[in-house]
Design a protein around this nucleic acid. Sequence first.
DNA 1: AATGAATGAGGGTTCATTCAT
DNA 2: AATGAATGAACCCTCATTCAT
Lengths: 203, 203, 203, 203
Amino acid sequence: MPQRQPQHSVGQESIFQAALTCFYRHGYDGTSVRDIAKASGTTPAAMYHYYASKQDLLMDIIGRFMEQSIEVTRVAIDEAKDEPPAQLFAAARSHVLWNASDVVSSFVVNSEIRSLEPDNRHHNIAQRDKLQRMFDAVVARGVEEGVFMTPWPREASRAVVTMCTAVATWYKSGGELSPEEIADRYGAMALSLVGSTLGVASS
Amino acid sequence: MPQRQPQHSVGQESIFQAALTCFYRHGYDGTSVRDIAKASGTTPAAMYHYYASKQDLLMDIIGRFMEQSIEVTRVAIDEAKDEPPAQLFAAARSHVLWNASDVVSSFVVNSEIRSLEPDNRHHNIAQRDKLQRMFDAVVARGVEEGVFMTPWPREASRAVVTMCTAVATWYKSGGELSPEEIADRYGAMALSLVGSTLGVASS
Amino acid sequence: MPQRQPQHSVGQESIFQAALTCFYRHGYDGTSVRDIAKASGTTPAAMYHYYASKQDLLMDIIGRFMEQSIEVTRVAIDEAKDEPPAQLFAAARSHVLWNASDVVSSFVVNSEIRSLEPDNRHHNIAQRDKLQRMFDAVVARGVEEGVFMTPWPREASRAVVTMCTAVATWYKSGGELSPEEIADRYGAMALSLVGSTLGVASS
Amino acid sequence: MPQRQPQHSVGQESIFQAALTCFYRHGYDGTSVRDIAKASGTTPAAMYHYYASKQDLLMDIIGRFMEQSIEVTRVAIDEAKDEPPAQLFAAARSHVLWNASDVVSSFVVNSEIRSLEPDNRHHNIAQRDKLQRMFDAVVARGVEEGVFMTPWPREASRAVVTMCTAVATWYKSGGELSPEEIADRYGAMALSLVGSTLGVASS
DNA sequence: AATGAATGAGGGTTCATTCAT
DNA sequence: AATGAATGAACCCTCATTCAT
């Protein structure tokens, strides 16, 4: 699991975090620049020192998270045994873990796409597609090699990503199951979904 | 599939529809009462003739859709053969169909829960739970009867509802697949997810 | 004490009374036509059946009360013994009684002059002057005849009317003193104010 | 006579003054925030930089004036010769002077109590009572010492305050009488009202 | 790096009034 | 005589943003 490194100054970081929390609780349009300033203990004008606009802040939040989502998935697939079932299991598992590790960001990223202005939205959609295609590729290869029996690889692949991402909408830390346990189960369910001929031993 | 009957006066109905479209495109907080008025060809004041507030309008949209979601699922389960696989298939299938039949409402309902004020939100959560429990019951019975092999019935049940609901986030009418085809596939995937020992012939 | 006769239809009367209460509690500008309608159990449109506007309603309330104020004072002076002390005592006494008999109207009349539109206000000011001049005349005659010793008849006369009118701002029915008792005391105080050489036996 | 010192920034002061004028002319409910902005040469938003709300502005106006009214009266009584007639004369005199020195504030303060929200109103009533009790105490002592003959000290005391305060409702600067002359006359009338056995030489 | 002041535009909501029924 | 629907204007207030300091 990669570290979430600041890259920001402490002033910027506190604003970034405050915005994240606000957007999570009240949405982008439901959050005012004043709300962010109050939550970060600064003034509205301070935000404009680091970001050109409120929209720019949202882009930073979303873009950063998506970049890392892609990276995390790529690493998971690369490090898995070079066979579709192991790769799909690893990809689904790491995607769940990643989203569960930062439910707040995940939720904001997945619910505020609409609040992006056109150009920013296009960029985001491209990132999303890139992530989806990584899963698609694994599933497609599994079908080619005859280890995944699903007749609808595209739908199955989409369903896998959807259900893993959605974990962030209901997961609460401190719940009955640890993120790792949930991740294992979702890995297994992903294999079910594509009609894998064989399971994968969980850690 | 039940008809969406107005029950509203024409004035109210046009406002209802306009709000739905606006909320879908720009979100609750991103939509002004003036936007709704413009979209419905009336004035801001007209909305207040039918609804006590913008929030009240949102509640009407969400409450109505959720009520019907529950009803549709209940009918699907009731009318299916009295066996868990057939019931789960029918429930998933009808849930997909229902959400695909009104992507706009579905999306708004599933993305604007946060915009509900506390009391309204509690009511909505109760409705959501009610729907989830209908799926839970079918899956639980299947596990008891030994026809569903999943070791995690609760997670699987949640994943089924999640992925079916999410169809509304990407389905576009006029696409490659008809709603019925998609619904069939999701019914089958639901059975995969719970480890059903046998499939079900689609209609 | 003259009777307050309706002259209105019952529909109009209930609106008149409702408006009076509303204006008393929240002021003219603080009262909406809807408030009046609600308080009278009708609809906003009903008011327009009897009055041309909200302003017109206010004029009815104020004009009617002022007319009667003048009439009451005239009768009191006419019926008193033809001597300044008796007349001033009677005028002050009846003015207190009149205002205490309908504190609500009195308060509205004396606090909403400003809410009158120019033409209406001019008419109201004329009525007010007419009332004041009745007291002025009595005081002036008393001074001429040497029974009132005040060196400032105008100020004293104004102070008398002012303090009697103001009774409505604090009098609460059911209080320690009856309106008659208060009226007697104010009659006596009025004589003090003008430096009357002799008191007047109260009834 | 204490100076009315700004204590405000110039921005706030100009808004304060503009509001005062508007409230005086059209009442609290009859004045819009835009009216105040226009009158002060700023924008509606500027007011919210200094005050939390329009109501808050009203409270500032009323609270500040009442505080000073009390202070002015206290000083007048303290600095007068330590005998009830001198004290009542001084108190009435200074109360008239104070109200005449700022007719606008006085009028607003005495006519917009109703526009205060409950909590604010309670605070204001307490201030009013405090002022009234200062007069009550002087009159009561005069009666005890046998120098005031009135049989109704409470009513007389109230009438004194009432008539002095009301000067602001009719006094126009530049009129026939100077504020000092009017004040002297009202001081004398106050003594008449309580049946003082001896007058007080005016300045 | 940080902020208090300021603003034009727009937020949700209520207004007095009209009019067809 | 009475009302539900409708509307344009205005309500109080908050918005994202700028700028001098």
